[in-house]
Design a binder for these strands. Structure first.
Lengths: 232, 232
DNA sequence: AGCGTGATTTTTGCATGCAATCTGGAGGTC
DNA sequence: GACCTCCAGATTGCATGCAAAAATCACGCT
């Protein structure tokens, strides 16, 4: 065993709206374990022993097991009957599939968000974009990452399809797992922001094909940057 | 309470490879409840009381609850904390989203299956297609439905992306729920088969754009037929 | 040393029991 | 009659306990 901290979300962890224990352990556990996986505190392939996790979160095995089943459906946990749970592996092959799938959805998002988003929604997205630029200038990588996720998720929401939004979120989560390990380099961040600028222009102009194309290109550029660092 | 049969999968139900109870109750329950939902035996919105389901499957509440959490992740069951589980609603609005999402994936499938499928895989798909035609001529709607699902799922597999394949299957399931209630009319079935013919031609010719276009069109025609019957 | 083989320990799967919450209705008040 | 309030019954949430399965280890064998 490693001599690491056994602490779970002691009190005020980073993510703001963490479900309260008292409101039900299921949501609390799902959010808590998901966070630990997304932040890389639990690495891909790591064993998720029930007794261990029960200790960290101070709950009994019943709600914990239910939470693991739920996370398995999100593709974050791998369940092997009679052999326990592990953090879902994230090899380059799967990551390539994840980026490719996300690309297909980005295409859809571009075609539809350009038509369906209201002016107010576009203004809201613009604010997110500006907050993202501010975070980069302030050199706050933690904020930058969270705002970047929020920006793309909001854009996905503007496409107006609940089903694809859920899938998009799942894929985004699995990418975030990889991204958290690789400290994006500054030059890629600046290039990314420039792409965001062009995305906002296409959206404001409500240019469907243009927006779709830019989103796909942005996804591919991100994929290339992430995969390059992964495949060391 | 209705005076209906309380029987669950007594012995030899229709679906061939049902997980064995002895191999673990989780898979058994997930497959069993999913089947009941997909076949319409449990209608949209129906309450899924734990005691009731425990009685039907002769299991205790612990594995049953775990199965419900898993099915919630598939979009088939709606879980409301402290208020129990219901079969996920399938209103026209959601169904429209499901078809639209599936359309986006069909586009991707067309672009990639045309390039990635091996000759042997195309031949295998051709066999499925011919079995489908045979089922239609034999007027075996049960077989037709199952083969049709298998055909499209196999085509999705040929696109070579595990992530989108899982999503595709989820969406297909939710459509099947609606389709099972509406007894496709024969003229639509024949039109559908004609579309399949053209799909096979495009795939054999490995014509990416053509295949994508035909798959999207097929999806939209199906959507129109299903939605027309739903919105009575 | 390498490799089965069997006992011990650990871990998972499932059932049960109690506490908390929700639901439905009777009775009271305005 | 409409609207609380409170009480039973039913249902869900969670913890615990036992049995089955895997993993670990010790031992003996070739």
């Amino acid at each position: 065993m490693s001599g690491e901290s056994q602490m779970a979300p002691s009190s005020a962890s980073s993510s703001a709206l963490r479900p309260d224990r008292a409101r039900g352990l299921h949501d609390y556990l799902v959010a808590g374990i998901r966070d630990m996986i997304l932040k890389g505190e639990l690495e891909a392939g790591a064993r998720l022993g029930e007794a261990d996790l029960c200790g960290r979160f101070e709950v009994s095995r019943t709600p914990l097991r239910e939470a693991l089943k739920a996370l398995s459906g999100e593709g974050l946990v791998l369940l092997q009957p009679n052999r326990g749970a592990t953090v879902a592996p994230l090899d380059p092959v799967r990551l390539r599939d994840v980026f490719e799938a996300k690309g297909a959805i980005e295409h859809f998002i571009g075609l539809n968000a350009a038509v369906r988003a209201s002016d107010a929604e576009i203004a809201g997205l613009q604010e997110l974009h500006e907050a993202l630029v501010a975070a980069e200038e302030a050199e706050a990588p933690q904020d930058y990452t969270e705002l970047n996720e929020a920006y793309h998720l909001e854009l996905a929401r503007l496409a107006g399809n609940e089903e694809l939004l859920k899938t998009y979120e799942r894929l985004q989560h699995n990418i975030l797992r990889a991204r958290h390990r690789i400290n994006d380099d500054p030059s890629r961040v600046r290039a990314s922001l420039a792409e965001h600028e062009r995305i906002m222009l296409a959206l404001t102009a409500r240019a469907r094909l243009d927006l779709a194309e830019r989103l796909v290109a942005h996804n591919e550029a991100t994929a290339a940057a992430v995969l390059a660092k992964i495949a060391v």
